[in-house]
Design a protein around this nucleic acid. Structure first.
Lengths: 203, 203
DNA sequence: AAGTTCATGGTACGGTCGTATCACAAAATA
DNA sequence: TATTTTGTGATACGACCGTACCATGAACTT
């Protein structure tokens, strides 16, 4: 049976099994045995490709963040041919809201990881600084471009605005996740704020 | 030894032990034995006052939310004699940011509970709808009053603005928690947004 | 062809966790 | 004073969980 196998691919499959089962039952309730069963392999195999649970979790987080980053930038680029910068800004912010199953799982797990990272240096190290800062840079750049095209209201600080919008989107996301808020109302809130940043009817 | 004892008080002491130890090591890592040790009682006693771990967690969340609600409204009222409504709005939003130890622990644990509530109906039921909605009502009311005094920029929707600000504050809070953002930068972001809501120089 | 490496299965071990059980003394009740 | 209730201790049980160990056959190397 043992023909040579692509380790990277295997690890990805297992990591995605982790994400699926954690999305269903919560990250805290996931054990190696669950991941193995979900991936359709034996417990031994999970141990073989990841030696320890911590390494599995770490890889799972990296994989999750990477996949979601791709998803977001795909949507932003898809909105590139629309009316203008505002469409891209909206695409970026809305893609991060937990509206469908994939983004919901992402939000759920990313928040789980964030909570764990408070007490776990290994988890804290990597993606919780790098990843959101990248998003913030991208959004700030979009806003700056809009500003140069005189599409924004005066007095807007692109960097501060980017940070605020991202934080708001994250906060609304958790609101949706815990059932406090509907996706529609979250969208309305974001929309209202964008209306106060972007010039509605121009000069 | 057994003189009659105030159950409510005992339960509160144990719940606060839970909050302390969970604040240090993370909610996921807390067991009944840890809570017992932190409270200085035997495991049996924790079982005696809360029959099950789920009930302990539930009570702990309620207690946490209640205590923090009191803290926030105390700060808001303390700001009541300052310049005007904006001071109260700022007090409300800033009190929710994890700047000191207490608010940091609150943010940490509240987010932990929020994540758990996604897969736990008992946890989801109570405070994740009621509590933030109350804050939103209070903030919306403050904004509406400011609006009637013509202190806000035109075109501001008090309700949407309240929801947005609260979400932003929550999002910034997590940013601080995971070390992505400093309290100062979070304050700056909030301040900038309030400057765009409140009229800076008046009529 | 022989030997080594790789992928995989099965299973056991030590620890911890939530919960249940047994025991007992101090207070309240009668 | 006799009895029931209440608060507390110690400890045991069964279930998991992460990890380690042993085995084994296919594939590659020489």
């Amino acid at each position: 049976m043992p023909k040579r196998v692509d380790h990277a691919e295997r690890r990805t499959e297992i990591a995605e099994a982790l994400v699926r089962v954690a999305g269903r039952r919560g990250l805290h309730a996931v054990g190696m045995r669950d991941v193995a069963a979900e991936a359709g392999v034996s417990l031994r195999l999970v141990q073989y490709y990841f030696q320890t649970k911590e390494k599995l979790l770490l890889f799972g987080l990296e994989h999750l963040a990477e996949r979601f980053g791709e998803r977001v930038s795909a949507r932003v680029q898809a909105a590139g041919d629309s009316p203008g910068p505002r469409a891209m800004v909206e695409a970026l912010l809305m893609a991060a809201l937990p509206t469908d199953d994939e983004s919901r799982t992402f939000h759920h797990l990313y928040t789980s990881y964030a909570v764990l990272s408070v007490n776990d240096r290994a988890l804290a190290a990597q993606p919780f600084i790098k990843n959101p800062d990248a998003a913030e840079d991208a959004l700030a750049e979009l806003l700056r471009q809009a500003q140069e095209s005189a599409l924004l209201e005066p007095g807007v600080d692109a960097r501060l605005e980017a940070a605020g919008l991202l934080a708001m989107s994250a906060g609304l996301g958790t609101g949706i996740l815990v059932g406090q808020r509907t996706p529609e109302s979250a969208t309305a809130v974001l929309e209202h704020h964008l209306n106060r940043i972007f010039r509605t009817r121009d000069a």
